[in-house]
Design a protein around this nucleic acid. Structure first.
Length: 428
RNA sequence: GUGAGUGUAGCUCAACGGUAGAGCAUCAGAUUGUGGAUCUGGUGGUUGGGGGUUCGAGACCCCUCACUCACCCCA
């Protein structure tokens, strides 16, 4: 035997036994999102590398060490998309989608690629359900987005989720930059007690020191300056309104002043949803406002916000919580034949039934009746149609109800309509 | 990128350095044309791959690949 080629590290197959769960979650998402006025957008799976360097941010981990970047035969540097926001903004600008309506709302269900070491809930290719709302500065848009996600996971019956929220301010001199100076001088006062990563972050990306998990560091920053105390007036007002809307919508959330997301472009509202049963990688969704990104990517100054939700983790959560999925689709009829003439008959009948919208499966191997019945049972067929020499001679078919075991004889000509009647009743 | 653990049949796992096994699944039969329960039998493996130690390696050593978990970070 030739050597087996296996799936690439960090990737996996979703086999037919699993895929119905994905269909369920995806169609729930489409239903919910479309009710909230979001429309699907599909962008290419790869982009010019520059889009992510500029959009996601040069100093992010994603860009610095996690991108699948390659050169194509034309010498272009391309990158498999590691996240969905920059491509959607690019598409929004490229297609001039802003001309029709002031606020554009998009969603996508698409694979993302990051070169990371795989572990529980982390893959090199993972499916992300993403949403972007471009054009509105209103805090109501923030609340709308979070409430939509909340509704979505409620619909799926996901339990034990926590929505954490923060406001990381804006670029005005009296807002985040001012806070960062405070934070830096505070960190310098305590520099001897900080871990090496934090020392490094102090210059490169000071905000990220806040969510350091090293105990000593988190203790220090708990006592340090908080962004929420240093927001400019506008950001403060925004935060206040978002909170009041969330309360009015009765969406439970927690303020977490240490929540800082790994992407550069966030302004003001950021949030993260965590779930139980996942191990260390427990974030099932994360997002926030990015009011400067559209301009950064060459558009006019346009406020925007969005989030991403990892479907692999979402489904893993549901499995860990024993969430009920709808039953996997079974088949209506299994057709069994005896003898060569029987095979040609069941092929013909199955084609007829299938065209009537009935799901039918046929046994094509030359096996004993008993074996074929076993297969029918295993596939969960509601009915079995048996066509052998006796039936052919009489021009009939034997029809067996697999639930109650009752068997009857049906005129071959009447099979189509009989099956339609029976299945209409049992579907009710 | 760092650290730890694990790779034996489709799945879950055994086998003191000495003939590679069990349960489940699968296939067939018991039932010459009838599923689920029971019983009987069969198929199925270059022990992840490569090298080394040894009279002899699934086991010990080295390399490599993969998986798992954690760090980092993220969904």
């Amino acid at each position: 035997m030739a050597e087996q080629i296996k799936a690439v590290r960090g990737t996996r197959d979703i086999t037919p036994d699993e895929v119905y769960k994905w269909h369920y979650v995806e169609s729930a998402a489409r239903k919910v999102f479309e009710k909230f006025g979001f429309r699907e957008i599909r962008t290419p799976i790869f982009e010019h590398t520059e889009l992510f360097v500029k959009g996601t941010g040069e100093i992010t981990d994603i860009v610095q060490k996690e991108m699948y970047t390659f050169e194509d035969k034309g010498g272009r540097s391309l990158t498999l998309r590691p996240e969905g926001t920059p491509p959607v903004v690019r598409s929004y600008l490229e297609n001039n989608l802003f001309v029709d309506i002031p606020v554009n709302k998009f969603y996508y269900i698409a694979p993302m690629f990051r070169y990371e070491r795989p572990q529980a809930g982390r893959y090199r290719q993972h499916m992300q359900l993403g949403v972007e709302s471009i054009g509105s500065p209103s805090p109501a848009a923030d609340a709308e987005l979070m409430s939509m996600y909340w509704h979505f996971i409620t619909e799926l019956n996901i339990k034990e989720v926590k929505l954490s929220m923060n406001n990381v301010g804006c670029g005005n001199a009296d807002c985040r930059p001012n806070y960062v100076e405070h934070l830096k001088s505070y960190a310098k006062e305590n520099i001897d007690s900080l871990c090496d990563t934090c020392k490094d972050r102090l210059e490169r990306n000071p905000l990220r020191m806040l969510d350091c998990k090293v105990e000593g560091c988190s203790e220090i920053f708990k006592k340090g300056p908080k962004i929420l105390d240093h927001l400019c007036q506008e950001c403060n007002k925004h935060l206040k309104l978002v909170k009041s809307y969330m309360e009015r919508l009765e969406i439970p959330y927690e303020m977490n002043p240490f929540l800082v997301r790994g992407l550069d472009y966030y302004t003001r509202t950021v949030f993260e949803v965590t779930a139980t049963g996942l191990g260390a990688q427990d974030a099932i969704a994360g997002g926030g406002r990015y009011d400067n990104l559209v301009e950064q990517l060459g558009g006019k100054p346009t406020p925007a916000l969005g989030f991403g939700c990892g479907l692999d983790r979402l489904i893993a959560t549901m499995e860990a919580q024993n969430t009920r999925f709808p039953d996997p689709p079974g088949i209506d009829v299994y057709l069994v034949s005896v003898g060569e003439e029987g095979v040609s008959r069941i092929l013909e009948i199955s084609y007829l039934l299938r065209r009537k919208g009935i799901s039918a499966e046929i046994g094509l191997e030359d096996r004993s009746l008993r074996s074929q019945m076993k297969t029918a049972n295993k596939l969960g067929a509601k009915y079995v149609i048996i066509i052998g020499e006796e039936e052919i001679e009489k021009g009939v078919a034997s029809l067996k109800n697999m639930q109650d075991g009752h068997q009857e004889t049906v005129d071959m000509q009447m099979l189509g309509s009989t099956m339609e009647d029976k299945l209409r009743i049992s579907h009710r």
